[in-house]
Write a protein that binds this DNA or RNA. Sequence first.
DNA 1: CATCTTAGATCGAACGTTCGTTCTAATCGA
DNA 2: TCGATTAGAACGAACGTTCGATCTAAGATG
Lengths: 189, 189
Amino acid sequence: MSGKRDKREAIVEAMLDLIVERGFHDAPMSLLAKRSGASPGVIYHYFPSKDELIHAVYQHVVSIKHELFFEGFSEDEPPREALLRIWLNAYRFYRTRRKETRFLDQYLNSPYCKTGAEEEMRSASSESARILQWLQPKKKGGIVKDIPSEAIYGLTLGLAASLAKAPKTFSPVTLKRIAETVWQAIADE
Amino acid sequence: MSGKRDKREAIVEAMLDLIVERGFHDAPMSLLAKRSGASPGVIYHYFPSKDELIHAVYQHVVSIKHELFFEGFSEDEPPREALLRIWLNAYRFYRTRRKETRFLDQYLNSPYCKTGAEEEMRSASSESARILQWLQPKKKGGIVKDIPSEAIYGLTLGLAASLAKAPKTFSPVTLKRIAETVWQAIADE
DNA sequence: CATCTTAGATCGAACGTTCGTTCTAATCGA
DNA sequence: TCGATTAGAACGAACGTTCGATCTAAGATG
């Protein structure tokens, strides 16, 4: 019976579209009302303010990202295979979920995520934190090079992001080759 | 004495600050007038609209970036040294020019740079284009691995960017080590 | 040298519009 | 019928922009 959750989600989804299309500076509530099919009154029934709504959009996007990144992941997979899996998952996310990627790029670099962001930051970093936490013991164990965690992140997921933004589509073979180059770059011999 | 150019530049500089501090959605012309010491009228004397002003801020930032990236660069330096130099330059830019970096992150991911962007796009890509063009013959020559240009960009400058964003400061020794790891990752053995 | 001319720079009040948000009256489900 | 839900008109504030007046300084004219 198309309950209220649906309407809430429709609002979040419409706001996501709006921001991606027109940016934070040009995403008025009036247009959101039109696009989402919910009147201004209803929007303010679900969200106390525009800012809170935008934070909600962020939470929504982050949960999708987290889910897709760790699809099929298991703690006891060999390090190499686990990393290759996450890397390919990340590439797939950045490539297929363009709207979500674009929103994240805008949001994370805007002052929006600095204000009232505490709850968020925990979930924001949760997915990279989870990866890094998993990598930590591998460093001590000499499986992964002892370079800063940020470098590892940049070499792996950062690369996936910048590849996914390229106009070209890469064949599975090419991707596999790149993923292996990535592993070589961070693995300790 | 303190001619007109200064005022124009003061406006651009103040807008840069404003956007970095408060985002595109919360950088009103009224506040810009107060901060820059120029009245609304004068701002519109120098720039036809807010959008054009923002584009001007972008041009300003890009020219700084380009200059710093290629500081000390020479075409006939050996590939390895040239890449290390640019890599360290890039890291230094991202690390010390935080305002400019933050602005670029916001601007490039916003719809601002999609509208009326043609003139811009030429200079936007000019600095990465220059690097890639320089790398191209090295690939054919077997000096650099035959992987997509985007991958090379991600592995080098993308990494520099994500490292520079980390809270930590890295020692020159660490940086040198990372730069060499970068070279290993893209060099063909 | 004193005065006139003129084009650009500067100001800040004011404009019409649009924003985020609220309120009221109608509607719905029980 | 009664409380919850809704649509959309309405609100004050704030927005980007305009405008006519004023200022400044560098020739031009005599």
